[in-house]
């Protein structure tokens, strides 16, 4: 039986792995088969991760996380977890190749997934002008007219990246001010190729076998109008990736995994959660990394208490908490 399995491969998972492996827990980290590295794999320059004053590319940063975890003995398996059995004292983590890993602790750091627009034509046009990955697909929109939907940092980053290729980039946002950070807003406002479309919600995507435009609804007046486009990039946020723990761990009303106070302890003993899957607010590489460190330390304390129970028979460092 293993001491620890970490599910995930973003900053939270790898930081947990660095701490746990340095603590001698020899964790197994289940990175997925094709999405290893998490959210930063689809970003370009990361300018706000401390320690990199000149910035670093997202995939390069993740390669460093991984190298640091491996240096201390983290074992990495590139397969997808298909089933988590968290009910019993011994947890079971099943991979898509059928392998089952038994372990004493599990750290869930499965991150978040792109939020969809929720439109009927989304699936059909996905990959045909409708995209969730500017760094992957921007190349195909040279001298084209495209739109980015969203008002946060990722929407601004995508819009600015896309101006390298596109002739005109509309940023469609349903409010009249952005959520994005000050510096990202300023850069976007100063970019001559970017045009903002305020108070507008995408209600339909036009096109038979490729995107030709969108239908917009004015969120103030309710008026509808069409905007002709060659491509549409969606950056309207993320939802925590919790499908593996539905019905097994308590969730919050935000849909994130509930943890006890500022700790990483979930509603099941020996199961800890970190990163975007517990965080509806901050969602930064650095906050995810911090919560990954906390999860490894919480798990270490849990294992220590299991090994040497307090004299009254209760594991002193583990208290049932309030999961709200």
């Amino acid at each position: 039986m293993r001491t620890m399995v970490i599910v995930g491969s973003g900053p939270a998972a790898f930081t947990a792995a660095i701490y746990a492996s340095r603590a001698g827990l020899q964790p197994l980290l289940a990175a997925s088969s094709v999405q290893a590295g998490g959210e930063l794999m689809n970003t370009t320059e990361v300018e706000n991760y401390p320690g990199f004053p000149d910035g670093i590319l997202g995939p390069d940063l993740m390669a460093r996380f991984q190298a640091q975890a491996e240096r201390f003995g983290t074992e990495i398996v590139h397969d997808d977890v298909t089933e988590l059995d968290l009910d019993t004292g011994v947890k079971r983590v099943q991979l898509s190749d059928g392998t089952v890993h038994e372990c004493a602790t599990v750290i869930v750091a499965t991150g978040s997934a792109y939020r969809k627009l929720g439109l009927a034509e989304e699936e059909r046009l996905s990959g045909h002008g409708l995209s969730w990955c500017a760094t992957c697909d921007g190349f195909f929109f040279r001298d084209k007219t495209i739109a980015v939907v969203g008002g946060g940092d990722s929407a601004m980053e995508e819009a600015m990246f896309l101006t390298r290729f596109a002739e005109r980039v509309y940023v469609v946002h349903r409010r009249e001010r952005l959520r994005a950070s000050h510096i990202m807003q300023q850069r976007a406002f100063q970019n001559p190729k970017i045009t903002f479309v305020w108070n507008s919600q995408v209600t339909a995507v036009h096109g038979d076998d490729a995107v030709t435009g969108v239908r917009l609804r004015d969120t103030v007046t309710g008026e509808q109008r069409d905007l002709d486009l060659d491509g549409l990039f969606v950056a309207i946020g993320h939802d925590p990736r919790t499908h593996l723990v539905h019905g097994k761990l308590k969730l919050t009303t935000d849909g994130t995994i509930a943890v006890d106070g500022r700790s990483s302890r979930t509603s099941v003993d020996g199961v800890f959660a970190a990163g975007d899957v517990v965080d509806p607010h901050y969602r930064q590489a650095i906050t995810a990394a911090g919560s990954g460190a906390a999860a490894a330390l919480d798990a270490e304390a849990y294992l220590a208490a299991l090994a040497s129970p307090a004299p009254d028979g209760e594991a002193s460092s583990i208290r049932p908490g309030q999961y709200t």
């Binding site: 088969s33 094709v34 898509s96 002008g129 195909f140």
Partner: peptide, 28 residues
């Protein structure tokens, strides 16, 4: 082949595309 999104996998049989898989999907 009107590729506007990466990665994309296309299955060819007899010289024609018979199926397209968009995005990085798990092996299974």
């Amino acid at each position: 082949y009107r590729v506007t999104s990466l990665p994309v996998l296309k299955i060819f049989r007899g010289g024609a595309v018979v199926h397209t898989i968009t995005g990085a999907q798990p092996r299974a």
